[in-house]
């Protein structure tokens, strides 16, 4: 019999990952649109993204740290194995994380001339483009069931993730992040009362939505050989079709809402769609953390550790969720006045 704490910890793990993708992922997507800013309102697009990300990105980023901590506290053998075999892509991803975060803060608080800030903006946006691909590659490798138990030969450090399927998941992740960011940005632009800007992001969101659909098809096809566990899970389990149809409904609803400029609704539908994609993956892989031998049961920490971790997570949530909500309310409810930025008043 599985203890309740294990369900709880595993549940929080997937919920934290979901929130990270929906918030932190969109912050990365914002960087992508910073890179792709174009047209007469290019600067306005960049500013909107900077103001949307500025107050929240560090808090959003902590969800990733929470995922890592839960993994090594609750499932230490799985953590050790992923960190060993995925050393190369994780290292590359970390470089992206460092450059994205520092460059963004240098640009925001740098007080510099425009040129230096533009350079930092470029570092920020390129790092925002590459990091999600690497994150996706890591997730793809975990899903593919190819992470070896004892990687003692050189080729084992590259072969698990150097596959078409993993790169497919990498590009898919990038497309999802960009889609979320563009969809959220339509709401942000509407809130600052700029319909032309909202329309810029509406077009981007629709384009990204279609890309997500196409890439999803490609990744699914690649999974037949690239991740048989996921393919079988998605096609041979009872709950699969309801999830599949639900995801499709959310996707179509998001597209329709974007088309008809119901941006608030589109934001909810897009977030729901992405959450369902993640849960579909998690359910397809259940109960494996790492195929073929590590499940959430046999990789779990001892019961006492799980009990205390579950308690800590519950207590932490009591502290955290109201604060996080407060943050989002302060900066996301009424964006009209949010142009007041962190930089000090000009000195003269």
């Amino acid at each position: 019999m599985m203890p309740f704490a294990l369900w709880f910890v595993a549940g929080v793990l997937i919920v934290a990952l979901t929130i990270y993708v929906l918030t932190g992922g969109a912050d990365y997507g914002g960087g992508v649109w910073d890179l792709c800013a174009a047209g007469p309102r290019a600067q306005a697009q960049r500013d909107l993204i900077a103001h949307a990300i500025g107050p929240v990105w560090e808090a959003d980023h902590v969800w990733l740290i929470l995922v890592v901590v839960i993994l090594f506290d609750g499932f230490p053998p799985a953590f050790a194995r992923i960190m060993t075999a995925m050393h190369v892509p994780i290292t590359l991803m970390l470089i992206g994380v460092v450059l994205r975060g520092s460059a963004f803060s240098f640009r925001s608080y740098g007080l510099g001339q425009d040129r230096a800030r533009r350079e930092w903006g470029r570092v920020f946006s390129i790092a925002s483009l590459i990091t999600p691909i690497l994150l996706g590659i890591i997730i793809g490798a975990i899903a593919s069931g190819r992470i070896p138990a004892n990687p003692h030969v050189l080729r084992d450090f590259v072969t698990p993730w150097l596959t078409p399927f993993c790169f497919g998941v990498g590009v898919f992740t990038l497309a999802i992040f960009a889609y979320l960011a563009a969809t959220y940005a339509t709401v942000e632009a509407g809130a600052v009362g700029d319909p032309a800007l909202a329309d810029d992001f509406r077009r981007r969101a629709i384009g990204a939505a279609l890309a997500v659909g196409v890439i999803a098809g490609v990744v699914l096809t690649l999974s037949i050989h690239g991740a048989p566990l996921i393919w079988n899970g998605l096609t041979h389990r009872g709950w699969t079709w309801p999830i599949f149809w639900l995801t499709t409904i959310f996707a179509l609803a998001a597209l329709w809402a974007l088309w008809t400029r119901r941006f608030a609704l589109a934001r909810i539908c897009a977030a729901g769609q992405v959450a369902l994609i993640l849960w579909g993956w998690a359910l397809a892989q259940f109960p494996y953390l790492l195929e073929p031998d590590l499940t959430i049961f046999n990789a779990a920490a001892p019961v006492r550790t799980l009990d205390i971790l579950a308690l800590a997570l519950a207590a932490g949530a009591l502290l955290l969720l109201p604060s996080y909500r407060y943050l989002l309310i302060v900066f996301k409810r009424d964006r009209r006045a949010a142009v007041a930025v962190a930089t000090p008043p000009p000195r003269d």
């Binding site: 740290i65 929470l66 230490p76 550790t305």
Partner: peptide, 12 residues
């Protein structure tokens, strides 16, 4: 991990 995850998760 199962022993010292505790301070790390609280730190999180």
């Amino acid at each position: 991990g199962a022993i010292i995850g505790m301070p790390f998760s609280l730190e999180g």
